[in-house]
Amino acid sequence: MLDQTLDARAARLNERYKHHAATEVLRRALNDPDLGRVTLVSSFGSESVVLLHMVSVVAPGTPVLFIDTQMLFQETLDYQVEVAEKLKLTNVRVVRATEREVALNDPDGTLHQFNTDACCDLRKTIPLERELSQFDAWITGRKRFQGGQRTELQFFESEAPSRLRINPLAHWRSQDVQDYLAENNLPRHPLVAKGYASIGCAPCTSPVKPGEDPRAGRWRGSQKTECGIHFIGGKMVRTGANA
């Protein structure tokens, strides 16, 4: 009998697809019985349209989870609608904290000013986990060139206790992303032209200067570089310029 531990499943999948390109990894993963129910989690940020386009070509009915923290830029909300319509994505699900959760934990909307981790837990991590509990695996846009713990990223990785992550763009370079955007004439997030390289919530995101790490504009001035969505071994991984 095959070893069914998460790590063993991830290793088996990485061996199976190690010579495949990103689109083929995605195409096959969406139909591989070893992965079960799969969803794409998307921020509809600066590079998100690459994976969204790939999904629209391969399987446009794939569930797409969009986390609306209720603190996003209006440009992001508008861009989400534009991209979903342009790519004909038919199963975009908006994920939010409940009104009761926000009323209990952040009634005046100032939690981010003194406890960014708690704010991200409330508005991102907990609502997303609630939705992801319905799935066996999820697709992310993480890439090795983003640095930190991501430098050794594989196509498939385990997420305890019972889920797998799929990283089709793990081996891509920054230029590969730009080439794909141009070759497919994909719409860019409007804030990219204003210097925003990595786009999150409006209060905690700022433009980056030439030569800065792309994630330097997230939670600028603090040690925080991850919202809590990405974990390894059940622990939040700090990556990027401030790690």
Rank of each mutant, 00 (worst) to 15 (best):
H189L: 05
P33V: 03
C120R: 00
L77F: 06
N14L: 12
D106W: 08
L122A: 04
D136N: 11
S162V: 13
Q70N: 13
H19I: 12
S48D: 11
E99P: 06
L181Y: 09
G141F: 03
T90E: 07
S162C: 12
P207K: 01
A182P: 06
Q4L: 15
T125H: 06
I232R: 13
H20G: 08
N105T: 09
L122V: 05
R238W: 10
A170L: 11
E15A: 15
F73E: 06
V57Y: 02
L52W: 01
F73G: 02
S198Y: 00
Q154A: 15
E157L: 02
I199Y: 03
R173G: 11
G195A: 01
V64K: 00
V50S: 04
A197Q: 02
R9S: 12
Q178W: 15
S43T: 07
F66W: 08
A8S: 15
D7S: 14
R28Q: 14
F156W: 07
L128T: 12
E131D: 03
L191I: 07
A137T: 02
L13W: 10
E47Y: 00
V92M: 12
N105Y: 10
N91W: 08
T76I: 10
L191S: 04
L2V: 13
H53K: 03
H230V: 09
S174R: 15
E101R: 10
C119Y: 01
S48M: 02
L111G: 04
L13C: 09
E101K: 06
G45E: 01
L122G: 04
L186P: 08
L13V: 11
Q175N: 14
V57T: 11
F145G: 09
R150P: 00
T76N: 09
R130C: 03
S42G: 08
I139M: 09
D136S: 09
I166R: 11
R218W: 07
E85G: 12
L104C: 12
K124E: 00
Q178E: 15
R238Y: 13
P207S: 01
W172I: 02
V92Q: 11
V94T: 14
V177D: 06
P168N: 08
L40F: 10
C119H: 03
Q74K: 13
L30W: 10
A22C: 02
T225Q: 04
R144H: 06
V192F: 04
S158F: 02
R16L: 13
L181R: 14
H171S: 11
K86C: 04
T98Q: 11
W219K: 01
D78H: 06
A137L: 03
V58L: 00
R28L: 15
S133N: 13
R142D: 05
L65W: 02
R238Q: 15
G228Q: 01
G147D: 07
R142V: 12
R215E: 03
R165G: 04
A197H: 00
L30I: 13
V208H: 00
Y180P: 04
R163T: 15
Y79F: 12
E99K: 14
V94D: 07
L111F: 01
K235F: 04
F231H: 13
V57R: 12
V237A: 12
F156G: 06
H20C: 14
E183L: 14
G109P: 05
R9Q: 14
E82C: 02
K235W: 02
I199Q: 02
I67P: 06
Q149P: 15
N91A: 11
T69L: 01
D78E: 14
